[in-house]
């Protein structure tokens, strides 16, 4: 191998190990992580629909899991991911349209997304439990 095309192992930017996390960067990677979690949630939703279309025993298994501790934690997590990805996605759509790109606006909308997600997640579970 000639010296010119030998791979050079110099550090790559943005070199995450020495990068201090900020609200904006944490929210950015969270958008991806919640998106991946929601893809798994979509698999579960389709499985649940298939169970609902079938016999009672299969649906009863889903109903049992959904009301178990593990099931409730999973569903609560998916609720959180859904509202986060929804609100942060709207934030992204505004950016795509050219609005809210100033640093202070990006922080303000980021905080709004966090607050909105918490309120919507807890609020929908409180509402769901009150309707039982």
């Amino acid at each position: 191998m000639s010296a010119a095309n030998r791979p050079v192992s110099r550090p790559l930017s943005p070199h995450l190990q020495v990068y201090r996390p900020q609200l904006t960067s944490v929210l950015s990677i969270s958008h991806r992580m919640t998106g991946i979690a929601l893809s798994v949630g979509l698999v579960y939703l389709v499985a649940w629909l298939c169970a609902a279309s079938g016999k009672g025993e299969t649906y009863a298994m889903f109903a049992w899991f959904n009301t178990s501790v593990v099931g409730r934690i999973a569903l609560f997590g998916w609720t959180f991911c859904l509202f986060y990805h929804l609100f942060n996605g709207i934030r992204h759509l505004f950016w795509d349209a050219g609005y809210g790109l100033e640093l202070k606006d990006a922080y303000a909308s980021g905080k709004a997304v966090v607050i909105g997600t918490l309120v919507a997640t807890v609020g929908s579970w409180v509402l769901a439990f009150s309707l039982r």
């Binding site: 939703l45 389709v46 629909l49 298939c50 609902a52 279309s53």
Partner: peptide
């Protein structure tokens, strides 16, 4: 699968 499930229901 999702469309079949909904139609089946």
């Amino acid at each position: 699968a999702s469309v079949v499930a909904v139609f089946r229901i």
